[in-house]
Simulated assay, not measured.
Amino acid sequence: MSTVRGFPSGEYTQVGAEVAIDRLDTDVTEGTLTVRWFAGGTSDDRPTFSFHYSGENGDFGWHHEPNPHVDAWGHFQERVNPAASYDYEPYTFSSVNPTRVVWEVMSVLVSRLQSE
């Protein structure tokens, strides 16, 4: 990441990061990754989170939250045309541990950007 900002100021319920594209070995020149994470109200609650990329070559993300468009909590969503609605498909995260999820998402993000 080249820069990171938290929103709203002082609470950081959402983090926006400019992706350091030059480090990803891809032809993409700019992009933003917005990360949201909520651990839940109790230790028994499932976390909800999303890693959503927006850039010159796409608008897509990996989400772990209830969504009426898919049966599972984990899903991938993508909008191929800015005027179109999102397409959804189930996605299974290997873990809901924050550190593991970050590495997993960054790996699939890089692969996706390199294939564009």
Rank of each mutant, 00 (worst) to 15 (best):
Y53Q: 06
A17C: 12
L33H: 04
F93R: 00
A83K: 14
N57R: 13
E116C: 11
H63K: 06
F7P: 00
H75F: 02
I21Y: 04
E56R: 04
F60D: 02
S50D: 03
A83M: 13
F76D: 04
E56V: 09
S111L: 14
V35L: 10
A39V: 09
V70S: 09
T99G: 10
W103L: 14
E30A: 07
Y12Q: 01
E104N: 10
Y91E: 04
G6R: 09
V101I: 13
D44K: 13
S50Y: 01
N97M: 11
T13P: 02
G6Q: 07
E30Y: 05
P8K: 06
E116V: 10
H52C: 03
A84D: 15
S54R: 15
G6W: 01
N81W: 11
N67F: 02
H64Q: 04
T34G: 00
E89Y: 07
E30C: 07
R100A: 14
D27L: 07
V96N: 12
G61V: 06
Q114P: 11
P68R: 10
L113E: 09
V80K: 15
R100K: 15
F60H: 05
D71N: 14
T26E: 14
P47T: 00
T92S: 08
S107L: 12
V15Q: 08
L109I: 13
R5N: 01
E78P: 00
V80A: 15
P8S: 04
E18W: 03
V108Q: 03
G58I: 12
R112I: 13
H63Q: 08
N67M: 04
D22E: 13
S111M: 15
P47Q: 06
D87E: 15
N67A: 08
Q77M: 00
R23M: 01
I21V: 14
G61F: 00
R112C: 13
G6T: 03
E18Q: 05
N97Q: 14
V105S: 11
V101P: 06
S95K: 13
E65D: 02
G74V: 02
R23F: 03
